[in-house]
Design a protein around this nucleic acid. Structure first.
Length: 421
RNA sequence: GUGGGUGUAGCGCAAUGGUUAGAGCGUCAGGCUGUGGACCUGGAGGUUGGGGGUUCGAAACCCCUCACCCACCCCA
């Protein structure tokens, strides 16, 4: 019979991987909590319209990467390809804007894109997604990047670069678009097929192209950055001064653009050269018009997402101090009768306890204890039962001593001896 | 969707077209019947990803297919 495996691009997360995920989640919740962010969880499945309207129907994500299907009732549903759309929907649906002036929220969970898998890219991947609604103050833009730098330091990520840019508002973008299209039209012959297609649909994306000819054309092209309106320009300068205030290192990349239509003004991308082709592991930006476009009041907002699989590839190996582990080895049926009381006593005291189910020979149980990295082995056989004691063996230095055979008293005593905080 | 690479035991690997596909690590048992790691012995574990073809003979060569990895595209 054919073995059933995970679907292409889907995978089980276990062992070291899940430990890294837990560390990333733990550190994220810690710093986000300190700065007043509330965790929310939104559904993985949403109406297809939500993503088409927010991400943009001309983007690659919507055009060819969504897991979309028709349900039994005939509705078009989509597994979320990113988190912002759902969070914006929740913000409006729960009326958060009426309950608080500024809403700082985050969500952690899986996203789905139907792409060909490669290093750091899966069809089901996970993000820590952070959003702030209700202010266009550039201080928050800098605060977010500073928070990310704290998080990365905490996780032992040292080599990364933070690139920032401004893509302006609707006004500057309209003006620039006309300038850019006329520039590119005179150089059509040097653009690749993809870029010709992008020319009228989404000309800003041409900056992303890696074709050498296109890069040449790009290197001389006018820059949106130089066409920012007065408000957007001063917003960016103010953002920079706050970045300096926090002391966060950054690099301005005037060609940095984003693949989702909703971004305005501040955009950023954090990359690592240890990641291969998919080097961006965190990215985001401001989206001052999206809430309004989704049917809400005009509400400026900013957010970012951390790609957990990619971050997990570069986090340092975190060796947290481990509490001593106790193994209970028993010999014979009489001793096994103590297994339940012993286990209960250890768990009551919060002590990690291990044991074998089959019993078997002491040698076999010792081997098993060793394979589980037990720090202490408690040995109980007929001899100990008749003497009303338990042998405690320290596996590191091979010292052995005896304690009275009384499960709860024993657990309390072992906690006192070896689990000092 | 396109291109390249790789598929042999649980894992990482070996095997000029030639007997019954091997060893290491891991696992289980024993040596040692109440004391772990080291050592020794033994056991279990394979549709050589799948299908077809060439051949006296295929893990190997050819074709198809599937999976994984990397890259393009795009993105976290």
């Amino acid at each position: 019979m054919e073995k059933i495996r995970t679907l292409r691009g889907f995978r089980d997360i276990l062992g070291e991987d899940i430990e890294k995920f837990e560390r990333i989640e733990g550190a994220s919740r810690r710093y986000l909590g300190l700065l007043g962010f509330a965790e929310i969880a939104t559904p993985v499945l949403e109406s297809t319209d939500l993503f088409v309207r927010s991400i943009g129907d001309a983007t690659d994500i919507v055009e060819k990467e969504m897991f979309t299907f028709t349900d039994r009732g005939g509705d078009s549903l989509t597994l979320r390809p990113e988190a912002t759309a759902g969070v914006v929907r929740a913000y409006l649906q729960a009326g958060m804007y009426a309950k608080e002036r500024i809403s700082k929220v985050f969500t952690i969970g899986p996203m789905f894109r139907h792409e060909r898998p490669q290093k750091g890219r899966f069809r089901q991947f996970h993000q820590v997604d952070v959003e702030v609604f209700g202010t266009d103050d550039p201080f928050i833009d800098a605060e977010l990047l500073w928070m990310i730098s704290l998080l990365l330091a905490d996780l032992g990520v040292k080599r990364y670069s933070m690139e920032i840019n401004s893509v302006g508002c609707r006004l500057c973008r309209e003006e620039f678009r006309a300038v850019l299209v006329s520039y590119l039209e005179t150089r059509k012959d040097r653009l690749c097929e993809d870029c010709l297609r992008r020319l009228y649909r989404n000309p800003l994306r041409i900056f992303d192209c890696k074709n050498t000819q296109c890069i040449e054309v790009n290197s001389e092209s006018p820059l949106l950055f130089d066409y920012l309106c007065a408000e957007c320009g001063s917003h960016f300068n103010s953002f920079l001064s706050h970045m300096n205030g926090f002391g966060v290192p950054y690099a301005i990349n005037k060609r940095l653009v984003r693949g989702l239509d909703y971004y305005t003004r501040t955009v950023f991308e954090i990359t690592s050269d240890e990641l291969g082709a998919q080097k961006a592991f965190t990215a985001g930006g401001r989206y001052d018009n999206l809430v309004e476009e989704m049917g809400g009041q005009k509400t400026p907002a900013i957010g970012f997402a951390i790609g957990m699989e990619r971050l997990a590839l570069i986090v340092g190996s975190g060796e947290r101090p481990r509490k001593p582990v106790f193994f209970f080895a028993y010999l014979g049926e009489q001793a096994k009768a103590y297994l339940a009381p012993m286990t209960k006593a250890f768990v009551d005291q919060g002590l990690p306890v291990r044991y074998s189910y089959e019993g078997k020979s002491l040698k076999s149980q010792m081997r098993y204890a060793d394979s589980l990295n037990a720090d202490f082995v408690l040995i109980l056989g007929d001899d100990e039962i008749s003497r009303k004691v338990v042998v405690v063996r320290n596996m590191k230095d091979k010292d052995q001593f005896e304690l009275p055979l009384d499960p709860s008293g024993l657990a309390v005593e072992l906690k006192r001896l070896f689990h000092k905080e």
